[in-house]
Design a protein around this nucleic acid. Structure first.
Lengths: 121, 121
DNA sequence: CAGAATCCATTCGGATACTG
DNA sequence: CAGTATCCGAATGGATTCTG
């Protein structure tokens, strides 16, 4: 279904369609579109193995539930790892996975640029 | 949100300021977190001056209202330009502004990577 | 400390129908 | 063709409270 024939009949089509589409609609992009998701990846990337509280501090007044949900999603998606230590008081550390690092590399230029841009009048 | 009234009076600006914060919380990032926003920027960037219908085609079954809203927002934010020609039938072309091009450059690596990643089983 | 759970206001986006 | 207008259900994020 939804097999659109190419406008240019001469274009060589590889066996499968979707030659190069710049609009990935599901998957990662959906996750990244949730609030603070991109920032979260980069914050963890910047702070290294980081505890929940530090992340919360970095975000200021973001509710813990939201932050927690976002962290969970990123862990579940395989971009963050979560290490829990059986200590008292309990300590948890988040860190980028390899995939997360790849993602972070692509996110950083964007966020850095966004940051500069937002701080301009 | 994002009220920064620091360094106005009484705040020591010695060295307590965090040099760089990787979590821009408002402005551009908010806009980019809306659905299809990032993809839209890159689609317009990839297709050059592009008409509304072509954009709609590129996105498949995305409702026109959503697409229209997103386009408006990006135009209002200064990342897209909208050129309307007084013809019949009417023609409208969207194109990246200079700012939009800067944004697109930072978005492309991300989307390209996301695309590859989503196509894997 | 690090969150899970709950509840809720708000927002968001989709479908549909209509216009210049 | 290129939208706009309207309505509405779904999803989202925030506040609060509680816990191991």
């Amino acid at each position: 279904m939804s097999d659109q024939d190419e406008t240019a009949a001469g274009t060589d089509r590889t066996d499968t369609e979707s030659p190069r589409c710049y609009c990935p609609l599901g998957g990662v992009m959906d996750l990244l579109s949730r609030k603070y998701a991109m920032q979260l990846v980069c914050v963890v990337g910047a702070l290294g193995p980081v505890r929940y509280g530090e992340v919360a501090d970095a975000f200021g007044d973001v509710s813990s539930s939201t932050l927690s949900t976002r962290l969970d999603e990123l862990v579940a998606a395989g971009y963050l790892s979560r290490e829990q230590y059986a200590e008292i008081p309990p300590r948890v550390e988040y860190e980028l996975t390899d995939d997360g690092r790849e993602l972070c590399e692509r996110l950083e230029p964007l966020l850095e640029w966004a940051e500069r841009r937002d701080q301009l009048p």
